[in-house]
Amino acid sequence: MPTKEKPYKSDEVVIDVRDLSISFGSHVVLDGFNLKLHKGEDMVVLGKSGSGKSVLIKCLIGLLRPDSGQINVLGQSMDSLKQDTLDHIRARVGFLFQSNALYDSMTVRENLEFPLRRHWTRMDQHQADDLVMEALKNVGLEETVDMMPAELSGGMRKRIALARTLILKPEIILYDEPTTGLDPITGREITDLMVDIAEKYQTSSLIISHDMKCVQHTAENIAVLLNGKCHAMGTYEEMLSSEDPFIRQFFQ
């Protein structure tokens, strides 16, 4: 991703976060965080566990309400949005959960159909089947269509979760620690898949991670989160050569 030219990339800002602050009780998680994601860009937010990375992307999709600050996603301000407008934005922004969040009680097919049926209500079964198979083909798991999530391995579950995120053809994909809990080989497969998907569907990605292999292969730009603020921003190479002691810790 970082090495290839992207004709679909532009200066259009798809996610704009300004002075974002959120705290839980007396614990301040984000304290005036700023970030801009451009169309076609793939950005990694790097930070220690518990530094508020997941809180940040949950704010972006409206799952958490910030205490103060501005969030604009695809040109829409996320505060005081009506439910149907929020749902419309959510259909254009995919979210890959850290724990995959596959519905245990549903088959893979039903899991993939769920967002389809909810967002695109006027869809016949034939169209839905085609989209499900296309999404599964993208992640190379067509044979699992009628299996239950409990029957799948960790890597397969991650792929199915990615397929479910892809099925609505989102313009932005938010990844919450996509390789956490996977072995290095499967982690690499998921990383390659993320790169392929970004190219194929011309998406912008915001990736939360502290897996440096994943960061190296996916990041065009890296934002470092420290003490609730954007501590540093730059390319992988810039970060690698940084003298900052906090940043250096990630590369050692």
Binding site: K58, L63, Y103
Partner: peptide
């Protein structure tokens, strides 16, 4: 137990981002 484990494994959040209350 069912809703508890759905909450813990972020399935309830996933439902919300899928346009479902």
């Amino acid at each position: 137990a069912e809703l508890g484990s759905m909450k813990v494994t972020e399935q309830i959040d996933a439902m919300e981002v899928s346009g479902t209350n």
